[in-house]
Amino acid sequence: MNIFRFLGDMSHILSFLLLLHKIVGGKSAAGISLRTAEMYAIVFCTRYIDLLWNFASLYNYLLKLLFIGASLTIVYFMRYGPSQKATYNADEDAFPVQYLIAPCAVLGVLINQDHSSPFEMVWAFSIYLEAVAILPQLFLLQKQGEVENLTSHYVFALGAYRALYLLNWMFRFMTEPDYQQRIVWLSGLVQTALYCDFFYHYYQSKKGGLNKSVKLP
């Protein structure tokens, strides 16, 4: 464990807390993409299936349960919560996710760390899917132009978590002799690159005060 990965996990937890606060606490799904929420639920349910046999560390075990639980809770409330459904904009949340899921599934089968292990294929699929899972959310924000304050912090924290993981992989590459994780490194780069435009607008709007809404052109 290193500080970058720890801060990354904390930022990820923060993004969940912000989203849960908005959706469950604030009873509003305005500006939130259900498609992104559902893809994240797929990402965690596939990647953390090793909960059944891998007890690498209690820390990992607890956070995996937390991430699966939180992402399923968010999907549940967005799909079945009365006031959440009323504030969710289905026609604007229209990114064709099948064009994201199918290629990731093919890539997961073709490019993974052990072609003899089905779990490795599923694991690689989840890494690739996570890299593009934020697209429907960014697409929705772009369409709406204005980003509500809490939503902007949620997206920022979610983007920051993987950016911190990039630092974690760099650190591990430099400090651990034969550590190399090309799959997560490349996917993490793509994932973080997708946030660059949002990060820029987030910084522009927040430097005038934390609770200004973010404007996307």
Binding site: R5, N54, N60, Q113, W123, N168, R182
Partner: peptide, 10 residues
């Protein structure tokens, strides 16, 4: 072959 990466990260 690539070293089988133990999945010790989230």
């Amino acid at each position: 072959a690539m070293k089988r990466a133990l999945h010790d990260e989230l």
